[in-house]
């Protein structure tokens, strides 16, 4: 039972972390290696909220706001010239991640800091005591997933975005301002990254490099998922479950490698990964 809950919560965390990266990759075909830094920004936003003595929940909107603002600035200043150079975009965003990390270090110090969890203690789920906050994260991930799905399928912005995903040239031909779509997408993606950072903070600690370990798994999950939130869910469920099982029954180190290695192999066999044709 605990194993099932571990799988469920791990998948939820991975999904939340990867969704912002997926959105940006799906729409812009750009891999945002600053995603880890946006994650970190979100974590520090919730740290600031908690140091200000606000409710632990106040960190959530603050993180989204900070992330989205940072995303806007980055899109305007750095991403614009790089859309035609996707490999260079990886590098520039990685460098940007370095810069954000160092700025955070200068502002907040290098030391590890903590944010109290808004929900304490455990909940009894069918006979197993399980961390209440981890269970809450499942709900949060579901909200993110459903929210994104609704945004993409039920709104005009979603319609336009999907048009850009499918055929950007055609979309531009139809008078869609793809620059604006990119701007909004990047900001939303960055905001989602920050949100995820804020959500994982109570589980771990806050430090300027906390985002990097998350970046790799999220990146590989996005690579196998293409541009679809549904295939991301599938990939996360499958690989997340394997990660937990391998970690629990074999070794946490091998478990930590599971996602990266499996994703690489999946892509070799099936370059489209979990995305449908």
């Amino acid at each position: 039972m605990a194993l099932l809950l571990d799988i469920l919560t791990t998948v939820a965390i991975l999904y939340a972390v990867a969704s912002g990266l997926l959105l940006i990759f799906g729409v812009m075909k750009i891999i945002n290696f600053a995603h880890g830094a946006f994650l970190t920004l979100g974590a520090y936003a919730s740290l600031v909220a908690s140091n200000l003595g606000l409710s632990p929940w106040a960190g959530v909107p603050l993180a989204i706001l900070v992330g989205a603002l940072a995303g806007m600035v980055v899109e305007l200043l750095i991403m614009r010239p790089l859309y035609a150079r996707p490999l260079d975009a990886i590098l520039a965003t990685w460098g940007l991640g370095m810069v954000i990390g160092q700025l955070i270090t200068l502002a907040f110090g290098r030391e590890v800091q903590f944010v109290a969890s808004p929900v304490q203690g455990t909940v009894n789920v069918w006979g197993t005591d399980y961390s209440a906050y981890r269970l809450l994260l499942v709900v949060a991930a579901a909200v993110i997933g459903i929210g994104m799905a609704a945004l993409l399928t039920r709104t005009r912005f979603g319609l336009i975005t999907r048009a850009v995903i499918m055929n950007e040239q055609l979309a531009r031909g139809l008078g869609i301002h793809s620059g604006a779509v990119r701007f909004i997408t990047f900001s939303v993606g960055a905001g989602l990254g920050s949100l995820a950072g804020c959500l994982i903070t109570p589980l771990s600690s806050v430090d300027p490099n906390m985002g990097i370990p998350w970046l790799m798994n999220a990146f590989m999950l996005v690579m196998v998922s293409g541009a679809s939130m549904a295939s991301l869910l599938l990939a996360t469920l499958l690989f997340g479950a394997i990660q937990v099982v391998v970690s629990t029954y074999f070794s946490p180190i091998l478990g930590g490698l599971a996602i990266v290695v499996l994703a690489a192999i999946t892509l070799r066999i099936r370059p489209k990964g979990f995305a449908r044709d």
């Binding site: 600690s205 370990p213 937990v244 629990t248 946490p252 930590g256």
Partner: peptide, 10 residues
């Protein structure tokens, strides 16, 4: 640098 102790805790 590991910070995810889920499996160990299990």
């Amino acid at each position: 640098d590991g910070t995810d102790w889920t499996a160990v805790i299990s």
